[in-house]
Write a protein that binds this DNA or RNA. Structure first.
Lengths: 146, 146
DNA sequence: TTCAGTGCAAAGACTTTGCACTCAG
DNA sequence: CTGAGTGCAAAGTCTTTGCACTGAA
């Protein structure tokens, strides 16, 4: 994992700084789709000098490199996901967490691309599908936080 | 149309002020999915005293009443759509416009709800599907501006 | 060594809050 | 009349920009 990110950055002509590696590791090791602020908090003990600004810039760089995917869940913040493949998310209206849905995003992309091409003539490259509702825990009435 | 919005506001226990009616009319008469700022601009000649603040508050009210749907297209702004039914949008990466895709959103909602219920046990109420790509004009290389 | 990357501070964009005034019902 | 709604100003939140310093290659 460490090797992978270092290698990928260098191959793309970017420097593999400790900050970048650490930020990537945080994202790769979680399924919580954290926002910039959250990544910053998680790294604060390990990198006391790390600035939030650097987190923003790094996440932007990662997004441009396709290492990371930006998620707009309508909360007014950007969350980040280290899984860059098109996939679906469910945003829980009770606890606020964003969970991955195990559904073939590629299939959706292909079907929608074809449909939209035929009905309207538009070209589709990517999609963002967010489901709003209640995660299992919350719809079962279990207490939860986040 | 005018009657409709007035009636619906009153039925919900809200006052049908000229500002509210005007803001709704703007949204109902366009397919451009304007943001708050844009709505404000469009009404500035008719309502010189209208404040951007009121536009924000009104759009929020409309959203809560289900009269209007909020769209996050990843531009960092909120766009609004007077069609509250679940449907699909395509955001053009060239000209920036957001176009409606004529596809049965209800069908997607039902299918995804069932899938997610069975695989994960989550409850789905709504969805937001944005396709990213190029609108017909832009993918044909035609000049265009928003 | 050298410049991409970092960190600080400040600015920017969009949105919300607080409060006195106004007008819809 | 009366309080929901408006408009002004100010503040807040998330994100970006500018610039000198630093450390990866």
């Amino acid at each position: 994992m460490y090797v992978t990110i270092t290698k990928r950055l260098r191959e793309a002509g970017f420097r593999a700084t400790p900050q970048r590696v650490a930020i990537y590791m945080i994202l790769a090791q979680t399924k919580a789709h954290p926002c910039a602020e959250r990544v910053y908090e998680k790294l604060h003990s390990e990198f006391p000098s790390l600035s939030l600004n650097t987190v923003y810039k790094t996440l932007q760089t990662f997004e441009e490199l396709g290492l990371v995917r930006r998620l707009d869940t309508g909360e007014g913040i950007c969350r980040y996901d280290a899984n860059p493949a098109p996939h679906i998310h469910l945003a829980c209206r009770a606890c606020g967490q964003v969970v991955d849905i195990d559904y073939d995003g590629k299939y959706i992309l292909e079907r929608m691309s074809q449909y939209v091409k035929e009905n309207g003539g538009h070209e589709v490259c990517d999609f963002n599908l967010i489901l709003y509702g209640y995660c299992r825990a919350c719809s079962n009435g279990e207490a939860s936080s986040n």
